[in-house]
Amino acid sequence: MFKALDPILHSQLRLAVVSLLISVKEAEFTYLKEKTGATAGNLSVQLGKLKDAGYIDIHKQFKDNYPLTLCKITKKGVDAFEQYVKALQTYMKPDATE
């Protein structure tokens, strides 16, 4: 039986962001932009969607007088990511197509 894939995570940029955030405790916006190769505008929109879903926390502060956006995955985000990977694995199993 196929598990439904989480529509929030089943998007290239959002999945890339969550995969990055799962590996670190906290990351700056510029780091995510650099690693995903996304534009600032698109990344902002996708981060907003992940935040609305409760998958990430976004914290804004100042560093050397410059605005700094920090992103961190939440417990709900970690659980959703794990479920997403499990669901993907059911698709990949050879007997899943039978």
Binding site: L5, H10, S11, Q12, L13, L15, A16, S19, L20, I22, S23, V24, Y31, K35, T36, G37, A38, N42, Y84, V85, L88, Y91, M92
Partner: peptide
């Protein structure tokens, strides 16, 4: 990064690449 529909294989490859990129950075 373009906005496109992902296949299961592409999803797993993307997760793998991003985790590797994160590891490389720290």
């Amino acid at each position: 990064m373009e906005k496109k529909e992902l296949t299961q294989q592409q999803s797993l490859a993307l997760i793998n690449t991003m985790i590797h990129k994160a590891r490389e950075s720290y």
